[in-house]
């Protein structure tokens, strides 16, 4: 979802469709991102427009944490592999 928003402002329907999410599910996801201050939403008539919150580095800590978590998952697998290789 953030990847899509990296290209610019999108409405909820545009965000939900490629992820095969329902409108309420997408709205819920956006709410979490809003709370994490990664996304800002504005409502124009019946359209909910979302964009990535400005100041990229202001949120670096939240962003780093997510990225770190993904990498650490891989490195923990590497730990196990190294254990196996040393046991051989």
């Amino acid at each position: 979802m953030l990847r899509r928003l990296a290209d610019g402002e999108r409405n909820l329907t545009e965000l939900a469709a490629p992820l095969r999410m329902s409108f309420p599910a997408a709205s819920k996801h956006v709410r979490v991102l809003e709370r994490a201050r990664l996304v800002r939403r504005r409502v124009v008539g019946r359209t909910h427009l979302c964009r990535i919150e400005g100041k990229p580095l202001a949120d670096a800590s939240v962003w780093l944490e997510g990225y770190c978590r993904v990498l650490e998952g891989n490195y923990q697998r590497l730990d196990h592999l190294l254990d196996d290789l040393q046991a051989e």
Binding site: L2, A6, I52, A60, W63, L64, G66, Y67, C68, R69
Partner: peptide, 13 residues
């Protein structure tokens, strides 16, 4: 660089 972090943030969430 920040795009990479955004991808991770999404995954982390």
């Amino acid at each position: 660089r920040d795009g990479t972090l955004a991808t991770g943030a999404d995954q982390g969430l």
